[in-house]
C-alpha cells in the first residue's frame, strides 16, 4: 500500500477546508469551534436573549450531567474499550437511590428525617454503580469479551432491571432537601457545577498523576506489551469500568435530584452526546488518549449550541439530527486532517 492515494471524498473535503486554522492541534480546533458556536448562536438568537445571566445559569445546571458522563466515556476509551452502558448505569443507580429514599422515608426510620433517607439513598445508588462496574469490568478483564459486546449486553440488562424495579413508572416523593444537589447553589455557583469541577479535577489527577492512570493509558496503547511488562492489566481494566460506572451513578443521582423523580429511560440521548463530546475533544477511540480539558470545552460548546437551539425553538428531533450530523462531520474533518498531516 502506498497510502498516497487519497480517496476522492477526502480530497474534496480537504479542498473545501483549505489549509486554514482548522489544521492545528485538536484542542486549537476545539477552541475555534467553541468560539464559532458562541458567535453564531449570539447572532442567530440575538444577544439580548442569548447573552443573559439566566441562560448561562441554566447552562451551568445542565452541563454537569453530560460532562460527567463524557468523562466516564473518555475513561473507558482510554483503555481502548467503550462503555455503552453509562446511561443505563446512571438510570439504574438513580432508581435504586430513589426507591431507597422513598422506602426509608415511609419506614419506621422516617422520623429520622431527610438526612437518613438521603444518606441511605446515595449509598445504595453508589453501591449499585459499583456492582454494575464490577460486572462490566470482570467480563472485559477476566472473560475477555470485547467491551462493546459486554456493555451492549449490560445496557440491556441494567435498563431491564430498572424497568422491572419500577414497572416503567416514575418514582416520586423524594426528600425535599435532596433537590439541593441538583438545583441548589453554593457561593453563587450551582452545586452540580461544583460537583462537575471536582469530577474534572479528580479525573485529571487520576489520569495523569496516578500509577493507575498511566497504566490505563499504556494498556490502551498496547495491551500485549502491557501484559509482557507485568502491568496489572486485569486490575486496571476492572478499575477502569468500576470508575466509569461510579461516575455514571453519581451522574444518575444528579439527574434524580434535578428532575425530582427517577425513571428507567431518562437521558437516553446522553449516550450519543457523550460519544460526540469525547470524539470532539480529540480522544482517539482506539485507545491511549485522554483530554480532560478538551472534554470540558467540548461539553461547553455543545451546551451553548443546545441552549441556542432551544431558544430558536428547534424541536428535540432537530437537535438529535444536529448531534448526529456533528458527530459525523467532526470525525470526517479529523480523518481528513490527520491523513493530510502524515
Amino acid at each position: 500500500m502506498t497510502g498516497s492515494r487519497l480517496p476522492v471524498g477526502a480530497a474534496l473535503v480537504n479542498r473545501v477546508l483549505g489549509g486554514g486554522i482548522l489544521g492545528r492541534t485538536p484542542f486549537a480546533r476545539l477552541v475555534v469551534f467553541t468560539v464559532a458556536v458562541f458567535v453564531s448562536m449570539t447572532l442567530l438568537v440575538g444577544s439580548d436573549r442569548f447573552l443573559t445571566t439566566a441562560n448561562f445559569q441554566s447552562i451551568a445546571f445542565q452541563l454537569p450531567e453530560l460532562a460527567l458522563l463524557s468523562f466516564a466515556m473518555m475513561l473507558s476509551m482510554l483503555t481502548g474499550g467503550i462503555d455503552l452502558s453509562v446511561v443505563s448505569v446512571a438510570n439504574l443507580s438513580s432508581i435504586v437511590a430513589a426507591m431507597t429514599m422513598v422506602h426509608v422515608l415511609r419506614g419506621p426510620a422516617g422520623a429520622g428525617g431527610d438526612a437518613i433517607a438521603i444518606a441511605a439513598g446515595v449509598g445504595a445508588g453508589v453501591c449499585t454503580g459499583l456492582a454494575c462496574g464490577l460486572v462490566n469490568g470482570c467480563a472485559v478483564a477476566f472473560v475477555r469479551v470485547p467491551s462493546i459486546l459486554v456493555t451492549l449486553g449490560t445496557l440491556q440488562l441494567f435498563t431491564g432491571l430498572a424497568l422491572v424495579l419500577t414497572g416503567g413508572q416514575a418514582i416520586i416523593g423524594l426528600p425535599d432537601s435532596f433537590q439541593w444537589l441538583g438545583n441548589g447553589t453554593l457561593l453563587a455557583v450551582p452545586v452540580p457545577l461544583w460537583l462537575c469541577a471536582a469530577g474534572a479535577a479528580v479525573m485529571a489527577v487520576v489520569i495523569n498523576r496516578t500509577a493507575f492512570g498511566v497504566e490505563a493509558r499504556l494498556v490502551g496503547t498496547n495491551p500485549i506489551a502491557a501484559w509482557f511488562a507485568a502491568l496489572p492489566v486485569r486490575s486496571v481494566l476492572v478499575r477502569t469500568y468500576v470508575t466509569t460506572a461510579l461516575v455514571s451513578s453519581v451522574t444518575g443521582l444528579l439527574m434524580v435530584s434535578r428532575a425530582n423523580s427517577a425513571k428507567a429511560d431518562y437521558g437516553s440521548s446522553y449516550l450519543l452526546q457523550s460519544i460526540l463530546v469525547v470524539v470532539l475533544a480529540g480522544v482517539d477511540p482506539a485507545g491511549g488518549s485522554a483530554r480532560v480539558a478538551g472534554v470540558g470545552l467540548a461539553v461547553f460548546a455543545l451546551e451553548l449550541l443546545s441552549s441556542g437551539f432551544g431558544m430558536m425553538r428547534l424541536t428535540s428531533f432537530a437537535t438529535e439530527l444536529a448531534w448526529g450530523a456533528f458527530l459525523l462531520l467532526v470525525m470526517v474533518i479529523n480523518s481528513v486532517l490527520e491523513r493530510r498531516g502524515k
Binding site: A211, A226, A229, G288
Partner: peptide, 30 residues
C-alpha cells in the same frame, strides 16, 4: 514492537512503565 514497546508513548513512559508503583509519593500520586 508488538510485545516490548508502547510505540506512541514517550521514552519516559516506556522506561517507567514497569516501575510506576515505586515512583509514587505519600498520597499515592506519581
Amino acid at each position: 514492537l508488538r510485545e516490548g514497546l508502547f510505540l506512541d508513548r514517550s521514552i519516559a513512559d516506556n522506561a517507567n512503565a514497569s516501575s510506576l508503583r515505586a515512583l509514587t509519593t505519600g498520597l499515592r500520586l506519581l
